[in-house]
Design a protein around this nucleic acid. Structure first.
Lengths: 139, 139
DNA sequence: TGTTTGTTGAGATTGATTTTCATTCTCGTC
DNA sequence: GACGAGAATGAAAATCAATCTCAACAAACA
């Protein structure tokens, strides 16, 4: 038995915990941290262990199913890989996270790859500042 | 007594630990993490404490003397602020860290600020992949 | 000099993540 | 359907970076 994801990816061995974790990740409207993933998975299978969550996050990451992001905090956030790559904009004040994308980023990466003779496999652009609401409060 | 840095910045209160930590940071050829800073500072003052290192990293950061970076790891790295802002390119295979800068990044940030009505105060672009040496070994 | 305020070292604490270990499960082969 | 090797699991302990507590001490300033 295999689990199919996007008609392309299979996870092996297939275990009920993996299936559960992936389905929680897929239902999630945004990135989760390990603890939140654990909390949501526990609702459906109370016996799942936090260690299993961490172990499988590594597995999924290695398989390229999910992205790991560092959003300012020490802890990591995870999200299913989607078609359009996106980056994050985090408000220092209210913590709101906005996603954005820009074709300029690809141009930039092309340039960097050429200039440095480097092959880029992972991109993380993290912008922090003040969202339009919090901008008003300030200065 | 004040400590002068770049003829502009002063740290107050001025303590021997702060002076030591800043001088280690300035002598460092590249970013350090808290532990490495602690190790180097300990060589000159064996009694300095790790808590002091962390406390002062926060102080220096608040004063705008240093930058805090997340280089793929959970832990943070710190470096003195320099004139040209730069970003990092990290080789997955050998761990080598290369700095780069690109005017495209500023263009991108302008665009993001405009489109999202956001005020950006901190930029961190992190690229991971394979350097020219390790690229050969692979595929 | 005396007082107030901020800083320090040492060690305990936190919170996230990883590892260990005994047990259980998956899955290709019989 | 049973078998067995190797992989995955839960629970608890261990690790690791970072933070906090607190008594002792140093800096700033009157």
């Amino acid at each position: 038995m295999k689990i199919n994801l996007n008609k392309h990816v299979t996870i092996r061995p297939d275990t009920s915990q993996r299936r559960l974790l992936l389905s929680v990740m897929q239902e999630a409207e945004k990135h989760l941290d390990a603890k939140e993933l654990y909390r949501r998975a526990s609702e459906k299978d109370a016996s799942i262990s936090l260690a299993t969550v961490y172990r499988n996050l590594h597995v999924f990451k290695e398989q390229g199913l999910i992205n790991e992001r560092h959003l300012g905090q020490a802890r990591c956030f995870y999200e299913m890989k989607r078609l359009g790559e996106h980056q994050h904009l985090v408000c220092e004040s209210c913590g709101q996270v906005t996603e954005f994308e820009s074709p300029l980023l690809n141009k930039l990466i092309d340039e960097v790859q050429r200039k440095n003779n480097f092959f880029v496999t992972k991109v993380e652009l993290y912008l922090e500042g003040y969202c339009h609401k919090c901008k008003e409060g300030k200065r």
